[in-house]
Amino acid sequence: MPFDDLTRLDDDALLVLYANGDPSAARILTGRLAPIVQAHAWRLLRDRAEAEDVTQEALLRLWRIAPDWRQGEAKVTTWLYRVTANLATDRIRRRRGRTVDLDTIPEPEDDRPGVEDRMQDAARADALHRALQGLPERQRQAVVLRHIEGLANPDIAEIMEIGVEAVESLVARGKRGLAAALTGHREELGYQDDD
């Protein structure tokens, strides 16, 4: 099958082709899934090297189970979100006790237009990340999947292997925790005019 036709196949079908030894399927799946996994890992870890490591490990696990993958039971991305979150959680647990002084991290030099906006985004994202780290693991995962990844509650329920109502509860409690943690940062992050 030509490469262009393969790109129209869904992840499930491509994974079957991958297991059958089609190298085009390997390339298309990696190109399609790696950015999704890396973005999710980054949003949970906010560390580029760690996010890449997690992405590589999550994909490696996917390739290894490819021959046993049961089509139609779960979406490939659902499975990957779950594995990525578990790998990231392990790393967050290992990080506990070792603190990183953000002031010691050099700011990237960038004089392109819009750099100020990007720096403000980075500052807000950093503040959000620190607030997320203060939440219980399940609340953090639910909030990131719902409000940063933009997934629907039923999809999140499948990823977290819980009911939709439990997802709603975790997200609501997580957002309350975040609001409380970020209250003190809003002015310094340029939100004095909000509400």
Partner: peptide, 27 residues
């Protein structure tokens, strides 16, 4: 106001480097 933080986090996501993607494809 939380949405503004979520939007910032979504925008502040680095793209996967070409080298990393090549490495993962090779794997």
């Amino acid at each position: 106001g939380l949405d503004a933080f979520f939007d910032a986090a979504r925008r502040d996501t680095p793209a996967l480097s070409t080298q990393a993607l090549d490495r993962m494809t090779a794997q």
